[in-house]
Design a protein around this nucleic acid. Sequence first.
DNA 1: GCAGGTTGGTTGCTAATGCAACCATAAGTG
DNA 2: CACTTATGGTTGCATTAGCAACCAACCTGC
Lengths: 158, 158
Amino acid sequence: MTDSDLSRVLTLERFFPYRLSILSNTVSGIIADTYKDKFAISITEWRIMAVLGEYPGISADEVSLKTHIEKSIISRAVSKLLQRKLIEREFDPEDRRRSMLQLSPTGKSVYNDVVPTSYEYEEKLLCCFNDEERRQFSDLIDRLHQHAGALQDDEQHS
Amino acid sequence: MTDSDLSRVLTLERFFPYRLSILSNTVSGIIADTYKDKFAISITEWRIMAVLGEYPGISADEVSLKTHIEKSIISRAVSKLLQRKLIEREFDPEDRRRSMLQLSPTGKSVYNDVVPTSYEYEEKLLCCFNDEERRQFSDLIDRLHQHAGALQDDEQHS
DNA sequence: GCAGGTTGGTTGCTAATGCAACCATAAGTG
DNA sequence: CACTTATGGTTGCATTAGCAACCAACCTGC
């Protein structure tokens, strides 16, 4: 026991969850700047557009699953993107609740502009790693993500 | 050029900034659950308390620098923590603008409860890595963080 | 010692977030 | 066919974040 009454001190700067958070925010922040100024798109909006580029025609719910963004947030972002005519929406005739979303022509041109810039930035970011280190980093992230997901499920069951 | 008019598709799930963001949110989220229910403390509030445990007596501004949290958010969180008597505040007689913050006795007891749990969780999380992998991961994070910081500074100067 | 600039901190305002309640459609059950 | 349950999506509401304007205390050069 120290004289400060703290039985053990947490060193925030060395705490993994904190370091991940800071790193992630820094990285996402810089990259968001590249399209925020040019197209006035938020990170959330860009992620929606990104999955629609990958999976044209999916529903809002599927977008939510793929981006890990709350469905209410998706709903509002979608209506904003519709207003700005960056995406288009139809409804599934087989199931009239289900929306089918895709990028509009304008949305596609924005997409085509943002994607290379994003990859360029990713490259610029990762250039401090060699190929072997990239593979390692990628592998470690995947494994940690999977493990964290398993932990999360455990907590929910208890 | 594909028939979808997209010159190049971005695979969000494999995009590093995105993967970091998801991982970070998962990790921080689970750990926050451990003290959110018990003490009704948010991540922001906990981070403030954490640096005060490490550096008792520092000012709000220093807390902001160490946690990377906006000073306005710090300001509001501090007044909330003061109300709840989790921290204490005095003002520097040498510079009466400057606050000197520290954990209160109650704050310390909360701190003493949360810290071991947090470390336990960190351990539980990292147990999917061996020692060598932990060192690697830690090293890669640090280097990437440093590199990203440098990139950020570059952007601001241009 | 006082005008101009800095720094520490607070507050106002707007936007974004997250939860829960809700509505409409669909699917399963007796 | 009703009747319940599940699903996709929207909306209301309370909280939080983030920027900019601001105030008050300090510091500097004259």
